[in-house]
């Protein structure tokens, strides 16, 4: 049974909110129950940002993740410190190793280190680091289909930015490869 509870966290500007929205949007396209709950307030303005995403076969009860995340996608160090404890035992912890030197302190999690910024830089667009992480997440969980994510992204970007689809597709692919190899 599908019951994904995902924390996406990082600096404002790293695209963590969008990452979460795309998972929700793709889930909705696939007819699943979804919710997306952002942190809000002063921390949005340049500090850390995070959102809680749920994708489930059943109606979503509480949209809040407390200490029961099935996956945490961590884009910066403060987020690792804040959210590592909130993942359930046996859950996934995806760490952007380009920006986070620190290793996970728990040994009951499936931890993956993804050099998201390096990969995004390779692709020629640092802004796709979030999509690299998303690709890694999708590869590990198969929570939603990559094509659903891309059609969600198309709707989000709109016609004016439709040309960015290809690089994002590539970023997702590279993120997936990064965790396959590990």
């Amino acid at each position: 049974m599908l019951n994904e509870k995902v924390i996406c966290a990082g600096f404002g500007g790293q695209g963590v909110m969008l990452m979460g929205q795309l998972i929700s949007y793709a889930g909705m396209i696939e007819g699943k129950e979804v919710s997306w709950l952002p942190s809000y307030g002063p921390e949005m303005r340049g500090g850390t940002a995070n959102c809680a995403v749920m994708v489930s076969d059943k109606p979503i009860g509480s949209p809040v993740i407390t200490d029961n995340a099935t996956t945490a996608i961590i884009m910066n160090l403060p987020s690792l410190d804040k959210f590592e404890a909130d993942v359930i035992g046996g859950g996934n912890l995806l760490i952007n190793s380009s920006l986070i030197e620190k290793k996970a302190s728990r040994d009951d999690l499936n931890v993956y280190y993804v050099p998201a910024n390096e990969i995004a830089n390779d692709l020629g667009n640092l802004k796709t680091a979030n999509m690299v992480m998303l690709g890694a997440y999708l590869e590990l969980t198969k929570a939603v289909d990559i094509e659903s994510v891309l059609s969600a992204l198309k709707k989000t970007l709109g016609d004016a930015k439709a040309h960015l689809i290809d690089i994002n597709r590539e970023a997702i692919k590279r993120g997936a490869e990064a965790v396959k190899a590990s």
């Binding site: 929205q21 979804v34 919710s35 997306w36 952002p38 809000y40 949209p63 809040v64």
Partner: peptide
């Protein structure tokens, strides 16, 4: 409340 105002759902 702030939760229902800020969250996204279909």
């Amino acid at each position: 409340d702030g939760m229902i105002g800020q969250m996204m759902e279909p």
